[in-house]
Computed example of a mutant assay.
Amino acid sequence: MSSPTTAREYAYTETGSFNNLVIREVPVPTPKANEVLVKTRAVSLQFRDLMVSSGSYPAQLPPNLVPCSDMAGEIVAVGEDVKGWKAGDRICANFMIDKIHNDFMSMEVANSALGGAIHGVLTEYRCFPAHSLVAIPSHLSYEEASTLPCAALTAYNALMSGYEPLKAGDVVLVQGTGGVSIFALQFAVASGATVIALSSSDEKLQTATKFGAKHVINYTTTPNWDQEVLKLTGGKGVDRVIEVVGNATLERSISAVKIDGCIDIIGLLGGVGAEVPPVDIIRASIFKGLKIRGIFVGSVIQFGKMNKLLAANPEATRPLIDKVFEFENAKEAFAHLASQKHVGKVVIKVN
């Protein structure tokens, strides 16, 4: 597949709003010896992308940032030193292009995060280092595969890595029905675990039930949802909590988790400046023996292992896409994500 000499991409003239995005024409890059040139086919959006657009994301952004971190595409050219990849291969790039292994993440690796510290993927063509790539499972479309690098891999990292991998019979509390939460629900069900799902919408909870949640709780009509979780578990609490909100719900998550349970802290949906809850986290952690772990996406190695799980359970783990937007309508996609009306993932198709 030959590539043109110029391509379109989105960039921020300034942050403050996704409405500041502009389309510009740029030369198609030439891959270095260890790189591949990829034609972007689809990009999925994260809550992080809204934080970046507003200027609230805690990272030093390059000028005229090209946004977004999650993509799926087709290799169109390879550098002379690249082994194992060829034109026509379907790939995703890892969220942090230099996080290959599961070991401690250095600042250098953290600063390789797409769409933040470095330019992202909302572009028709981009070069990636060959070591950052994983093959797309054959049963997934480009749109489905674009949801994997952040949402799916974060959920996989939370449940399958860390202190103790998820096992059949565990009880998992999942907050919300966004991308990470739906993938966590799917992975837990595929692994034989029981899921309790939270949402403020009965309609969204119906979707969670469809995807295998055994119990659902509307936290608007049941604000003391932690007490309901304890009732559902016979007073024991859940084995682990997928905590995507942050400070605003951490107190109830600590209440809802069992002794020696695990809280995987993933998101900041409650806001960066949300007030710290009036709970003694240290005391609770000691006396309940809690394992509290921060999750920041995952590695290329984990990505490959996750794709084996997807391939082994193709229907149970198929990504849930709420809506697909055309490349020219990217701002509308951002607006739809910001409305929080979605269930699952919001995707931009790149023609």
Rank of each mutant, 00 (worst) to 15 (best):
Y57K: 06
V38N: 09
T30H: 12
T5P: 00
Y10G: 03
V36Q: 07
E35M: 06
C68P: 01
L37Q: 08
P27D: 13
P29I: 00
Y57C: 03
R24Q: 14
L45D: 09
L61A: 05
V43L: 06
L45N: 10
N64T: 06
Y57R: 07
V26E: 12
P27C: 03
M51E: 13
Y12C: 05
V28C: 03
S54L: 11
A33C: 01
F18V: 04
G16K: 07
P4G: 12
P4V: 10
S56V: 11
N34T: 14
V38F: 00
P29V: 01
L37A: 07
V38M: 08
N34H: 13
L21P: 02
A7M: 15
E9A: 11
I23Y: 00
N20H: 14
L50G: 08
S44A: 14
A11Y: 13
E14K: 15
D49R: 08
S69G: 15
N20K: 13
S44V: 08
Q46L: 07
G16Q: 08
N19W: 05
K32T: 10
S69D: 08
P67T: 10
Y12T: 04
Y12L: 05
R41D: 04
S44F: 06
V22T: 15
S69K: 09
T6N: 12
E35T: 07
V52C: 01
V36H: 05
N20A: 04
E25G: 06
R48W: 01
Y57I: 05
A59K: 11
R41C: 09
V52F: 02
M51W: 08
E14G: 04
T40Y: 02
S53R: 07
K39M: 03
M51Q: 14
P4L: 10
P27R: 09
E14I: 02
P62S: 04
R48V: 02
R48D: 01
V52P: 01
V26K: 15
F18S: 13
P4T: 11
R41T: 02
S44G: 10
S44R: 13
V22H: 06
F47R: 15
I23F: 00
E25W: 02
T30F: 01
A42R: 10
